[in-house]
Amino acid sequence: MIRVIPCLDVDRGRVVKGVNFVDIRDAGDPVELAARYDAEGADELVFLDITATHEERDTIIHLVERTAEEVFIPFTIGGGLRTEEDIRAVLAAGADKVSLNSAAVRDPDLVERAALRFGDQCIVVAIDAKRRADGSGWEVYLAGGRTETGIEAVAWAAEAVRRGAGELLVTSMDRDGTQVGFDTDLLAAIAEAAAVPVIASGGAGTLEHFAQAVTVGHADAVLAASVFHDGVYTVGEVKAAMARDGVPVRR
């Protein structure tokens, strides 16, 4: 079945851009929001920790512990994880997976060490990619699309898998925030090159876009943030639309 994954941005333990659920007591509480998404049928959750200062990063550990105790679907922590010790602490607190982005690009060995130590299945490598102007594939970017790396995205995806990534979270920086649909060319190229599940991210705007990520982009899961947080669609509506288009989902 294809997974539908809401992504929550968390800063110092609080959700940024909180969801306007009816009757919610605290729209900034990640755990309460996570429980609501679970009730709506979310298959998994991603928390992206955007806390800038390292001193305040203990807040994420506390968040992980509370989530593991109260929300009974898998969840991934991404953002700011740089070392094996960072990864160990988050997994030990109860996260199911970690998502590595810049740390993996800067230190590809980290993927290998982490996969060996904690298991491939809990190591997600996140790739932010932008189409190259000359049409020669896609470029890996860091820092939310600000830093160019000179690395080609499909080649990096294949390397990340060779080094032990259990899943790839692929975000199109061209499409992120545009709501014009996922970059299905990018997704299909990476799905072809990598024998692990691909999570599609960046560009969801209409209900049809989600199925397209799967039928055209061959993604194994779809991730979105704002369409859920802004209340444009519920997880249930997305799943119903995917099912109508012949994509198998849990509902």
Binding site: M1, I2, R3, D43, D120, Q121, G166, E167, A195, V196, P197, D220, A221, R250
Partner: peptide
């Protein structure tokens, strides 16, 4: 794909 990750 293996590992099998997801809902069945």
């Amino acid at each position: 794909k293996v590992p099998h990750i997801g809902w069945s």
